[in-house]
Nucleic acid binder design. Structure first.
Length: 1145
RNA sequence: GCUCAAGUGGCGGAAUUGGUAGACGCGCUGGAUUCAAAAUCCAGUUCUUUCGGGAGUGUGGGUUCGAUUCCCACCUUGAGUACCA
């Protein structure tokens, strides 16, 4: 009886289907186990051998768990919404549902051939209305929820409305939009419906927001960052601009911390966890707010202007002022300590530029200047007088003077005098009372509210190193603070950066660019003015879109300061030994240790940690900052301008979104005549004629009926690809349920996925979003678990081995000339001309005859032609290439007619060899291997085992057919243990000791391997077992029956066949896994390796119960030992009983 | 740049806690069977060698009686990520 794998496999596939062998029950006494594969997108290309790798691994594990007595849920379905079907629809006009159906059928056929133990009764397709009904439902649940930071979970929106009605929003601690306007209960209750809804939208877990997107007008769609190359669309090369669009967003940021914390509880590969951690990007620091300094009257107030110094000279003045602040005279310092921090009731600044001067101290509010005259002033009385005149007469300041002596010796008198002056002078804070100094202590915007710039910093300890601020060009304050002088430059800069995509901006790190706005902010502690720049190295989308630039401690700030000649004050002093030279001055010092803070007032002398804490403490004291945790994670945009996706269950009443009630779902995709965006840039659903919501009848009706009274327009966007895949694991638990997304009983029983296998490319997409939705459904009480996937394994990609032929780059020949790989390599490495080779000569004549260029053939000449650059590698279809890399030339010519007259320059033996290179397996590279072909030739069991045998599951590896014969002949050998030409050869006689040892060794190893997901090694183990049992001529049922169960997860068809031949009427799939018994492995002796200085030289068999001393004696007495010692006396003899003997000396 | 992973024969890869490096398979070589081929079976196959042996797991160092395994530095390759303040 031969091993007819094709018949056997067909027979058992049929049996499994007819008997529903792998149907999982939602009620069972057995413990549950849920094994899930990342479901595929059914593409038109079908499956290649890379796809089933993970499915085979999960199938082995599922079958193993069934043998181990588990109730196993192992489902499969399709992520069937997606771009390729839509793209195809646009090209051909064919409805994407039709192509999707065709592709799914093909996938199913291919999957079936491999013998998976899927429970197909639970199949899901994300594009089925039965399924997306619940995707829409989850969306509406998100819409009707908000995130309460106090309880740290999502809650129904009703609880928020109650809070608003009773206490307004000031006591509510929610994750919500920025720029929330505070209101009281009275105000809320007085709001009209529209105002209330608008406010609620700022709190909902899914909300409409203006989001900046990459808009391509020519394609009429939004492009993802990776669809843009050099600022133009990858497809078609059309220009792309950044544009704000109103889109749905998901407030995933509410879950940032929980998504981070949850990683500690799940068994996922570390690199995957790392990439989620990085993606969420938690950073701890402080929020600091900087006041924008007031505008000078001379600048005309209004929207722009600067303070007190003359604009044209300001940078020079500021430099100088800063220098002077650093080295105050003794008198200056004494007075400063007495008047700073509003000690006299009014705020003073020191070394402040006023017009073209720098005055010692000034109270801007009272327009009072204090000058201290040192020795030098005696010599320049005239200058001082004219300066005083100018300040007093032209600018309206009052100047009072003291001498050094007065300040140092009679400070009380001095202070008294200043106080008197302050009391005598009116406050110029009020706009109307001073025509000269239009603004108060802080800059104000046109509505009169104080302007401030909020920044986030991870280094509050470096606050005294700030020498400028940078805003993102898109920052909303830019327009308000820019001075008239700078307006042109700023405008030009913003236009220039708007043209670049965000990715481009991020990729181009080297170019430093920015513009000064003309405005200044005030340092919260020193009160020094800080110039405000804009620069595109600051991203609008991260943090607040503004940074406090500390050039001495940040590389980008340093580069920017250097480039624009902005001062780089240093606040670091090295504490390392030897001290680091030039830190903070010659380069930005970014380390967090090895320094103490200097030039930083109250932070002086502190290290990183203490300074950080102290700075936050002081910021909180003056109300200009607080400790803060910032996340890189952004809210996820949830709208797509596509057709082939889930429609939103949303209609608009006066522009306010309303969701459609659960009982009216699903809202099905409407028909459209074309799948393109509309001419006026609306998404494809804008083409639908029947796409309006009748709120009275609760049905979708024709657009003509829209009256905005009972019939309203529906949302035109669709949901993104990740919507359906974020929760599908729960649908499998109860796939047919029409009343709930899954019943409570099913959810409680199956809980979550015990083992999830799939590719690592979903790290920050699908795997993050499904964790988010799971946590959300958990918060609302639908789930008892808050993580979807307990254990996850990334299977490595199977790569293709592309085949290449090499075409000579030459326009001299009528017909192309293709070279065989080895011949070409030889020629190139030997640097000879072609003419010296027989192969070439053979066809040279014919080449000449066809050559239309009478001047001859260039390649017969010099070496310079024989370089790889002269040849273009062309992909050949790998199916024309045999195992020895020989090309079937005729097949190739037939496949590519443009090469039907090509010359093929072969090897000496007449064969034509292709070059090989490992690339991703893809249709466009003609390196796809179809699993069906392997099944035809070797059978599914061989394919399954071979895919596992290829190497560790997690590792990427090229597909290479070379080893498959070995696996196939193993199965034949395995078969022969049970059957010969006359049928079954199994006997009931007891097995030999050796055979039992082989069996139990195998049980142990295979069990360990499966538990460790080391499937490649268990295939080897089976091979060893079969080799040994064959050698032992074992035919005992006692051994071979358990062996069939052992192998059945890997090669289920052959196992079923042998199992039934052994007389069983039931499927092998639930036969108990063989029990390992250690007694069969007990040995009495051991081949001890005897090593000298750690090198094994010979082995010696000794009884295992021999004592350490006896072992040493026996070894030392051995003649080979003497031979290796060459007369030396060993220094030491290490004996590890049962392991090794090592002789040192 | 940053983060992570990985470097072992001609090839895919094995070596479980630090204890005989190269299991198992492919390929290759020789042989048996055969008219021949396929299939099957047997033997050999890390390199080197003066046939005693010597060297050897990316490179250099360290710990240890003993290192593919642990530590340090470096090199190479691959993956992810990127002005994240």
């Amino acid at each position: 009886m031969k091993y007819h794998f094709n018949d056997i496999e067909a027979k058992w596939r049929k049996y499994w289907e007819e008997n529903q062998t792998f149907k999982a029950e939602n009620e069972s006494d057995k413990p549950k186990y849920y094994v899930l594969d990342m479901f595929p997108y059914p593409s038109g290309a079908g499956l290649h051998v890379g796809h089933p790798l993970g499915y085979i691994a999960s199938d082995i594990y599922s079958r193993y768990k069934r043998h181990k007595g588990f109730n196993v849920l192992h489902p499969m379905g399709y992520d069937s919404f997606g771009l390729p079907a839509e793209q195809y629809a646009i090209q051909t006009g064919q409805h994407p549902a039709i192509t999707t159906e065709t592709n799914i059928n093909r996938y199913r056929e291919q999957l079936d051939r491999i013998g998976f133990s899927f429970d197909w009764s639970r199949e899901v397709r994300t594009s089925n209305p039965d399924y997306y009904k619940w995707t829409q439902w989850i969306f509406t649940e998100l819409f009707h929820s908000w995130y309460n930071k106090d309880t740290d979970k999502a809650e129904p929106i009703e609880s928020l409305i109650t809070r608003f009605t009773n206490e307004g929003n000031t006591t509510v601690n929610a994750v919500c939009d920025e720029n929330i306007v505070p209101f009281t209960a009275e105000m809320w209750n007085a709001y009209d419906e529209e105002q209330q809804q608008k406010t609620l939208l700022q709190y909902r877990l899914t909300y409409l927001a203006e989001t900046e997107v990459n808009w391509c007008p020519a394609l009429g769609t939004v492009l993802a960052n990776d669809e843009i190359v050099n600022g133009v669309s990858e497809r078609g090369g059309h220009p792309v601009v950044r544009k704000k669009m109103k889109q749905w967003s998901m407030r995933i940021t509410a879950y940032a911390q929980r998504l981070l914390d949850g990683l500690n509880q799940i068994d996922w590969p570390q690199p995957l966890k790392d990439s989620q951690t990085n993606w969420i990007g938690r950073s701890v620091g402080a929020a600091v707010s900087f006041k924008v300094l007031p505008l000078a009257p001379s600048q005309g107030g209004g929207t722009a202007g600067y303070l007190t110094g003359k604009h044209s000279k300001i940078s020079m003045l500021l430099d100088k002022a800063q220098e002077m602040r650093k080295s105050p005279t003794k008198a200056e310092e004494t007075l400063w300590q007495e008047i700073r921090n509003k000690k006299l009731g009014d705020k003073f600044r020191r070394q402040q530029p006023i017009d073209t001067f720098i005055v010692d101290f000034v109270c801007l509010e009272k327009m009072l200047i204090i000058e201290i005259d040192g020795e030098i002033h005696k010599n320049q009385k005239d200058v001082d007088e004219s300066r005083q005149l100018l300040l007093e007469v032209k600018k309206g300041y009052k100047v009072i003077r003291f001498s050094n002596d007065e300040v140092l010796n009679k400070i009380e008198n001095v202070l008294e005098k200043i106080k008197t002056e302050l009391n005598n002078r009116p406050s110029f804070k009020d706009k109307s009372s001073s025509p000269l100094l239009g603004r108060g202590a802080g800059g104000e915007d046109s509505e009169g509210s104080e302007m401030k710039i909020d920044v986030f910093t991870t280094r509050p300890d470096t606050i005294f190193g700030v020498s400028f601020m940078t805003l993102a060009p898109e920052h909303e304050l830019v327009e308000k603070i820019t001075t008239p002088e700078q307006k042109e430059a700023v405008k030009a800069y913003i236009e220039q950066t708007a043209k670049r995509s965000e990715r481009e901006r991020m990729a181009d790190v080297k170019t430093i660019s920015g513009v000064f706005t003309g405005a200044y902010a005030e340092h919260p502690f020193s009160n020094e003015p800080i110039p405000i720049w804009i620069g595109d190295y600051v991203l609008a989308s991260y943090g607040t879109g503004a940074v406090m630039a500390v050039p001495c401690g940040d590389e980008r700030d340093y580069a920017f300061a250097k480039h624009y000649n902005i001062p780089i004050p240093n606040i670091f002093e090295s504490t390392s030994t030897p001290p680091l030279e030039g830190l903070g001055e010659d380069f930005a010092f970014t380390e967090k240790e090895g320094f103490k803070i200097v030039n930083s007032d109250f932070l002086n002398g502190l290290g990183y940690k203490e300074a950080n804490e102290k700075a936050i403490e002081e910021l909180e004291k003056i109300g200009q900052g607080t400790g803060k945790i910032n996340y890189r994670l952004r809210d996820a945009v949830f709208s797509r301008q596509r057709y082939w996706g889930e429609p939103f269950p949303v209609y608009y009443v006066n522009g306010i979104p309303k969701t459609i009630d659960h009982e009216h779902l699903p809202i099905q995709l409407p028909e459209v005549e074309k799948y393109l965006p509309t001419e006026d840039g609306q998404p494809p659903l804008g083409r639908a004629d029947v796409w309006a919501w009748d709120a009275a009848q609760n049905t979708v009706v024709s657009n003509e009926l829209i009256d905005n009274n009972t019939v309203f327009p529906l949302e035109l966007n669709t949901m993104p690809g990740w919507a359906g895949s974020s929760w599908y694991l729960f649908r499998y638990m109860d796939a047919q349920n029409d009343d709930e997304f899954a019943s409570q009983e099913a959810l409680d029983y199956w809980q979550n996925v015990d083992l999830y296998i799939g590719g690592s490319e979903h790290a920050t997409g699908h795997l993050l979003y499904s964790r988010f939705w799971t946590k959300f459904l958990y918060d609302l009480g639908f789930l008892k678990v808050d993580e979807p996937f307990k254990k996850l394994i990334n299977q490595g990609m199977i790569l293709g081995e592309s085949a290449f032929v090499y075409r000579l780059n030459s326009s001299q020949f009528v017909n192309p000339i293709l070279f065989s790989r080895n011949f070409l390599e030889k020629v190139i490495s030997e640097k000879k001309s072609f003419a010296e080779y027989q192969e070439y000569k053979k066809i040279e004549n014919s080449l000449f005859q066809e050559n239309k260029n009478p001047r001859g053939v260039l390649i017969t000449g010099t070496d310079s032609q024989t370089s790889w650059n002269n040849f273009t590698p062309l992909h050949s279809n790998v199916s024309f290439v045999n195992i020895s890399n020989e090309l079937d030339i005729e097949a190739f010519k037939k496949w590519l007619p443009e090469y039907k007259d090509a010359h093929f320059i072969t090897e000496d033996d007449g064969t034509f060899k292709v070059g090989r290179e490992v690339e991703k397996m893809s249709k466009s590279k003609y390196n796809v291997v179809n699993p069906d072909d392997i099944c035809d030739q070797y059978g599914a069991d061989t394919l399954r085992m071979y895919e596992m045998f290829l190497g560790p599951l997690e590792q990427a590896k090229p597909w290479n057919m070379a080893g498959i014969t070995g696996v196939h002949s193993f199965l034949k050998k395995f078969w022969k243990l049970y059957c010969d030409d006359n049928g079954l050869v199994i006997t009931d006689s007891p097995a030999s000791k050796d055979s039992l040892k082989t069996l139990h060794k195998t049980i142990k190893k295979v069990e360990e391997d499966i538990e460790n997901f080391s499937f490649n090694t268990s295939v080897s183990t089976f091979m060893i077992a079969v080799n040994e049992l064959t050698a032992q001529k074992c035919s005992s049922r006692e051994v071979l029956e358990p062996l069939a169960v052992l192998i059945s997860p890997y090669a289920p068809h052959i196992a079923e066949e042998l199992w039934s031949k052994l007389g069983h009427n039931e499927s092998i799939s639930t036969a108990p896994f063989p029990q390992f018994d250690a007694c069969h492995l007990v040995e009495s002796t051991k081949e001890y390796p005897i090593s000298f200085n750690g090198k094994m030289r010979f082995t010696l068999e000794m009884p295992l119960d021999l004592s350490k001393e006896d072992i040493e004696k026996t070894v030392m007495a051995h003649e080979k030992t003497k031979q290796y010692l060459e007369g030396r006396t060993p220094k030491k003899v290490i004996v590890v009983p049962g392991k090794i003997v090592n002789i040192v000396g």
